[in-house]
Design a protein around this nucleic acid. Structure first.
Lengths: 152, 152
DNA sequence: CATATTTTCATACTAAAGTATGAGATAGTT
DNA sequence: AACTATCTCATACTTTAGTATGAAAATATG
């Protein structure tokens, strides 16, 4: 619909332009005025037409302006959980899982029921975890893990 | 330098165009050919000129692209230990002191000897602390305090 | 000074955390 | 298949943490 309408408008415009040209031609022939003025007018009109066409049809030039916006992050939010260090410390999946639950403040019993194992299992994991991290208490484990970016 | 060169090129181009026009005019006058063809050529040339001008001179649309650049902050560098929240929770100096020692992974006994009070005292402080923070365990207290930026 | 708040301490108890040891089950590797 | 690492569980024990209650000093506040 829109395209159809546009086409009509452009056609009518072109027709009017033709009439204008013919009129100018007649005027200058009848009154026998300077040929150069006529050519100049033609040139002017068609230059304008060209400009208009170009602006209308050409794809807009887009210049990208890159603005850098600084986003402040708490370092923990990102850091992808220092994997190299984790492998270096040889912490297993379960141990890491338990470690992160610990850091959230859960008790051993809560952790046990959360990951569906017995309390004994959690305690065993804890022991291994503490040995690997070389700490004595869960709070120390949490502190160290946080410092080493092992947990978020 | 570049602008100067461009200007020369454009001038020369315009001059050449003039010569072309004059030549065409002469040809058609000498051979007395149709006036319409001449006008058509003028129109064509100047339309092209218009298009070229428009493309050359049109200002590019500027599109702003905002890139987010991540900047990491060391947590200690900023945050000034949310004092308003501390007063709101009515945490006393001692309680805060003990809280921060807790977060470092110390046991109650270690805390007691560190601040030169008895184990009982530390435990009492802990109780009040837990009540005020509305938590059940020291690990929860640490987690909450960290989340509320009460401790570093 | 009297009052309120904080800090201190003690005792007795319960609950949770941590240690030590042994061992079965599973899954991936050579 | 044998081996290794991981995950699992249990039991018994020790230590630490947390709860409840009461109360004596110290310190700030009107």
């Amino acid at each position: 619909m829109k395209k159809y309408k546009e086409t009509i408008i452009y056609s009518v415009g072109l027709a009017l332009l033709m009439f204008l040209l013919k009129w100018i031609e007649l005027r200058f022939i009848i009154f026998n005025h300077s040929f150069e003025i006529y050519v100049g007018l033609i040139a002017l009109i068609f230059t304008s037409l060209g400009i208009w066409l170009a602006l209308k049809l050409s794809k807009p030039k887009i210049e990208t302006l890159v603005l850098e916006k600084e986003v402040y992050l708490t370092p923990s939010s990102d850091f992808t959980l220092n994997t190299s260090l984790i492998t270096q410390l040889e912490l297993s999946k379960r141990e890491l899982e338990i470690l992160s639950l610990m850091a959230k403040g859960h008790s051993n019993e809560e952790i046990a029921s959360h990951i569906c194992v017995s309390l004994s299992t959690v305690k065993t994991h804890n022991q291994n975890l503490f040995t690997k991290l070389n700490v004595k208490r869960r709070t120390q484990a949490i502190e160290k893990a946080r410092r080493l970016n092992i947990i978020s």
